[in-house]
């Protein structure tokens, strides 16, 4: 070590050394690609470099604005987010309250509820696709045998049902995650607050409204942020469940971008799509950050 540097500088240098590998990897994998996508989106080029990059300005964005499939994907993404998040939140709060009670076999119950979240979404989706199957699926078997339906329901092939079917899978998978975060918040509320509430003569419902909910604002907001970021970039769920169908009814923005890039190999136009998606998510996260700031 260099003796001319002071203690603080030497410590700082060590710190920089420790942080550098992480920063390089994050820069290469997360930051540089976004910048490169912006560059790609303003030009025309080929993947293998046979056609050199030339600047085309806003051409791809103009095309994007006129692409009804893009607007459809944007709408699908927002609809999916707007439908699944409130359901997940409601179920998550319910599950958290349930898990906050003491009962026998709680550990096992919590484990069972955790499983849907822990398993790969892609494979979860396959399981549900199998259960939704209109010819051999579990749901149709139950519906037909019990007389709830007189002919097979096409859960995934019917434009009016596909979105709902997809939302159900998302809610099934992620309510438990919401519940866990809210449960941790619940458990951090000091018990004597409830005891004080009881001394004041609060009913269970008043307790929930006056004590629980206000103190859960933070965890709920955090859970909402994490989940809506996920929902806005949902990919493998429609990819494996419906491949965006029927007639693009479940084609999310991520899936649309993927198809543009890898089915049509249009990297420059695809880059414009992902840049727009990035901006949408960035805007959403800004809104959330402002909301978090204002919560106190």
């Amino acid at each position: 070590m260099n003796r001319t540097m002071n203690l603080e500088q030497r410590t700082a240098l060590t710190g920089i050394g420790f942080v550098t590998p992480t920063v390089i990897i994050i820069a290469l994998i997360l930051i540089y690609p976004i910048i490169q996508s912006v560059v790609l989106s303003f030009g025309q080029s080929s993947i293998d470099g046979s056609e050199p990059y030339h600047f085309v300005g806003l051409q791809h964005y103009a095309k994007l604005m006129g692409d009804s499939q893009f607007w459809n994907a944007l709408g699908v993404t927002f609809t999916f987010t707007a439908l699944s998040i409130p359901l997940e939140l409601a179920l998550g709060i319910g599950l958290a309250l349930l898990m906050n009670e003491s009962f026998k076999g709680k550990g096992l119950a919590r484990l069972a509820i955790l499983f849907p979240w822990a398993l790969p979404t892609a494979l979860n989706t396959l399981i549900w696709r199998w259960m939704y199957n209109s010819d051999y699926g579990l749901f149709n078997a139950v519906a037909l045998q019990s007389g709830l339906a007189d002919r097979p329901i096409n859960f995934l092939g019917d434009t009016s049902l596909a979105m709902g079917s997809m939302v159900v899978v998302a809610v099934w998978k992620t309510s438990s995650f919401m519940a866990l975060i809210i449960l941790a918040g619940l458990q951090s509320i000091p018990k004597d607050l409830f005891e004080a509430g009881r001394m004041d003569g609060m009913t269970k419902w008043q307790e929930f409204r006056q004590i629980t909910l206000p103190l859960l604002k933070g965890p709920i907001l955090v859970a909402l942020i994490i989940r809506s970021m996920d929902a806005l970039r949902t990919f493998e769920l429609p990819f494996n469940l419906t491949d965006g169908g029927p007639v693009n009814a479940t084609e999310s923005l991520s899936l649309y971008a993927y198809k543009v890039i890898f089915d049509f190999l249009d990297f420059n136009f695809g880059a414009a799509v992902v840049v727009v998606q990035f901006l949408v998510i960035f805007a959403m996260s800004l809104i959330y950050v402002i909301a978090l700031r204002n919560k106190d």
């Binding site: 994998i29 690609p33 490169q36 993947i47 470099g49 991520s254 993927y258 890039i261 695809g270 990035f278």
Partner: peptide
């Protein structure tokens, strides 16, 4: 670091695919 972790993975694809290929 927290902010970049919110980037959508699909946004990374065109660039990552090209660079990994090269």
């Amino acid at each position: 670091i927290l902010a970049v972790s919110m980037f959508p993975p699909v946004s990374l694809l065109p660039s990552l695919f090209q660079n990994f290929l090269n």
